[in-house]
């Protein structure tokens, strides 16, 4: 990283943010601090600028990504676009839409789409002492027995504010960014000072589903059901000749998987902790 640029990596590629606005670069540096990369192919170069009225614009090459955005909107769009490009570019690692946490080198994968509750569970489990890997995507390098997490800050929606209100000790910390709509980004060390991990061996796969007022329910999945669900959460299947079938089925064969329906995050987290600690 130089004074005016930041290189963020995931799944074998990187994106570079260049800006003369130190404030936005500082925020990106804080919230991508566990994903800062080195000598990897750069798949996107963002030129971010701000005018005197703090309106932000971003370009990639000759194309406009956005213009006249406020600080919050600019940050969100950069985060989202970077993730999309990193996911789409990877031809050597399968990428699944999933949160992940680690306990003694073993990963719990929380596979789910938006609103499944995976970020909330990731935040809660991090606060309980598990190592945070990601709240959004994991990668599985071809032939590897381990998964990697995209270890950005935890992104919580307004409905999950009870989590940071319960666990965050310092709401004035640099790594805590609260948006106007009450969604937040939390740098994971604010919830667990020693609590990030880049890589771990999968030990447990969970497909969480948050349902208000639902009774807590766990169902063990067969190997084929696990593969079926994993394929539904595979982001970059088209980058592989077999559409990721072989590597995903290898994962499904060796890791136990469950569906978990919950309304109470404490109950769900306690079950996950107990199950991973049983080894």
């Amino acid at each position: 990283m130089t004074a005016d640029s930041l290189l963020v990596q995931f799944a074998g590629n990187a994106v570079r943010f260049n800006s003369d606005d130190l404030e936005i670069l500082k925020s990106l540096t804080i919230h991508f601090k566990n994903c800062i990369g080195a000598d990897l192919p750069v798949v996107a170069n963002y030129e971010v600028s701000a005018d005197a009225g703090d309106n932000f614009s971003a370009r990639m090459g000759s194309a406009d990504l956005f213009s006249n955005c406020d600080f919050e909107s600019a940050l969100r769009q950069l985060m989202q676009d970077a993730l999309l490009r990193l996911n789409g570019a990877s031809k050597t690692e399968l990428i699944f839409h999933a949160a992940a946490l680690a306990h003694q080198g073993q990963a719990v994968i929380l596979c789910g789409k938006t609103a499944s509750g995976k970020s909330s569970l990731a935040a809660w489990l991090t606060a309980l002492g598990m190592a945070y890997m990601t709240d959004e995507v994991i990668s599985l390098p071809m032939g590897s027995e381990s998964v990697n997490g995209f270890c950005r800050s935890i992104v919580l929606k307004p409905g999950s504010s009870f989590i940071w209100k319960r666990w965050l000790k310092n709401q004035d910390a640099e790594g805590f960014l609260r948006f106007a709509d009450n969604s937040v980004w939390i740098e994971p060390s604010l919830l667990n000072p020693d609590g990030t991990k880049a890589t771990a061996a999968p030990r447990l796969i969970i497909f969480p589903r948050y349902e208000p007022d639902a009774a807590f329910r766990i169902e063990r999945l067969t190997r084929a059901e696990t593969l079926f669900r994993l394929l539904q959460h595979l982001v970059n299947a088209r980058n592989f000749p077999d559409y990721g079938m072989d590597a995903a089925s290898h994962l499904a064969r060796r890791v136990n998987a469950y569906t978990l329906t919950y309304s109470n995050i404490e109950t769900a987290s306690a079950w996950i902790q107990k199950t991973i600690q049983q080894g």
């Binding site: 190997r223 084929a224 059901e225 079926f228 394929l231 539904q232 079938m245």
Partner: peptide
Amino acid sequence: EQMDGETVLLHPAKNIIIH
């Protein structure tokens, strides 16, 4: 992909996944 008697079918072009 056959697993323990069950089967997963994936049709890449049509984006169909069946258990």
